[in-house]
Amino acid sequence: MLPEISLNILDIAQNSIRAEADLIEISVLVDREADSLTVIINDDGCGMTAEQVASVEDPFFTTRSTRKIGLGVPFFRMAALITGGTFEITSEVSVGTKVKAVFVLSHIDRMPLGDINSSIHTLITYNTGIDFVYTYGFDGASFTLDTRQMREILGGVPLDSPEVSDYIKEYLDENKKETDGGAQL
């Protein structure tokens, strides 16, 4: 079991990376009035057949050859469902895959969001061949980080160079704080 929602996001996004996505969109949306925390991970990777989608929630399904068990999706699904939330995967071959998990925010069994900025920073700086669009919303406010925009400004300077890596960290930290006022989630 992964003890934070942010660790589940890091793990689920690895599936998109392995699916050879060029663009991964990640949204974390907190709505206190609706009592929900919604996570959406959307990629343009190789996608899955209807049969694969049906079996991916089964821990004994994996496309790997090293082992016969894949726990990433079952962990994430269970984490959402035990709060009374919902979980869905939609996918199309050659188009991409979308994973959506809705957690009931106030439920006692909802795991903490955890260090989401660290997950996003790790994904961006360790997968510089992929573009990420990360949106964080809290009630009415939100901010977005789009690596395509960053690349355009940076020219050839890589996203994992120390200066840019530090900037991304600060960008995530400052903007999250401004969006949610430092709320403990």
Binding site: M150, I153, V157, Y171, N175
Partner: peptide, 22 residues
């Protein structure tokens, strides 16, 4: 909100420095 403006400064500083990582 932190803006993307700072990235321009980083680019200007780094431009021309090819292969700063071995």
């Amino acid at each position: 909100m932190k803006s993307l403006e700072e990235l321009k400064a980083i680019r200007e500083k780094m431009q021309g420095q090819v292969g700063f990582r071995d």
